Computed example of a mutant assay.
Amino acid sequence: MGRHGDLTGMEEFATVAQAGSFTAAAARLKLTKSVVSERVRALETRLGCRLFDRSTRRVRLTEAGAVYLEHVNRIRDELRSAEGALQDLRQEPRGRLTVATTINGATLFVVPALAEFRARYRHIDLHIIADDAVVHPAHVGADVSIRFGTVDRPDWVARRIGGIDYILVASASYVATHGAPRSPGDLAGHVCLPFRNQVPWVFRQGERVVHEPRAFVSTDNGPVYRALVLGGYGIGMLNRLAVGPELASGAVVQILPDWKIEGRDEMATWVVLPDNRAIPPKVRVFVDYMAERMAAVSA
């Protein structure tokens, strides 16, 4: 079969396949017909099979040739991407960057990070798509998406940029009125706000305690859930990032800080890319910046 990875003759082969004749291919490649023919025959010899049926006036791909062409086209695409990536490295990141994320992610994480990002990269213009539906960035026309939780799709190109620390919290006004539980067993005497699939709440500190939150109000919407907790309607389970400023100011109080919440260790913050080809500079610097920002906020 010859040397693995030898690209000799591949460009000529693909051009003949597209042009439909050796003469037309030679004209496109600015080579003589004899040179193109010789290189394709050498390729066939190396591969040990015929790629073209030359019995007719117009050359046609054999079955082997059709299979080989699919692989050659992918290789050519990758080479063009590689060349483009090297050219991009010599240029300042620029252009429109579309970012898809959740509503909470946009409000609480992306938007607060924009001022410094804009100061660093003045030639990048951002467009934010905020929707809680978990979709692939390519399906909404995004260059990259930021997702919180788990990414259980092995076909997605995802990079973990930080963990998610889920904690129990309540507003200072709620604690002032109702007090703070000292153990998970005390939660039965409090208003605990359920959210989406975060039920039941399971705690561990030597013993394992399960609590089923029930309240007069519940929601599947992240911003609404956060508003309920901040509004003093009860105790809720939130990502620490979602209430960082409120914890720092004392407007929100962490509940049961010494108890571990089970089932949240696999949660993380992810960036998802449309595919695994070369990452454009505008996307690369955004991903790196968000990873840096996540590390700073988590610390």
Rank of each mutant, 00 (worst) to 15 (best):
R120N: 13
E12M: 02
V110R: 04
R284S: 15
V297G: 00
L7G: 05
H71P: 00
V35N: 11
A172I: 10
T56A: 11
L193R: 09
S21C: 04
G9F: 03
R74E: 15
V72D: 05
A24N: 07
V135D: 05
L187M: 03
W201K: 01
L51G: 06
S173D: 15
R208T: 15
G162Q: 03
L228D: 01
D6F: 02
P274W: 04
K30M: 03
V111L: 12
S34Q: 14
I124D: 06
N239T: 02
E116Q: 14
I261W: 00
Y68M: 14
G162W: 02
N73L: 15
A295K: 08
P112A: 15
V72N: 03
E266H: 11
R122Y: 02
V16D: 01
G250E: 13
R208Y: 00
A106D: 09
A25V: 02
R182F: 00
L114A: 13
F148Q: 12
S183V: 09
V202E: 11
L230Q: 13
V202W: 01
V169E: 10
V144G: 08
P181A: 05
F52G: 05
R80M: 11
A170G: 07
N276C: 10
R90E: 12
V135I: 10
E83N: 08
H178T: 06
A296F: 09
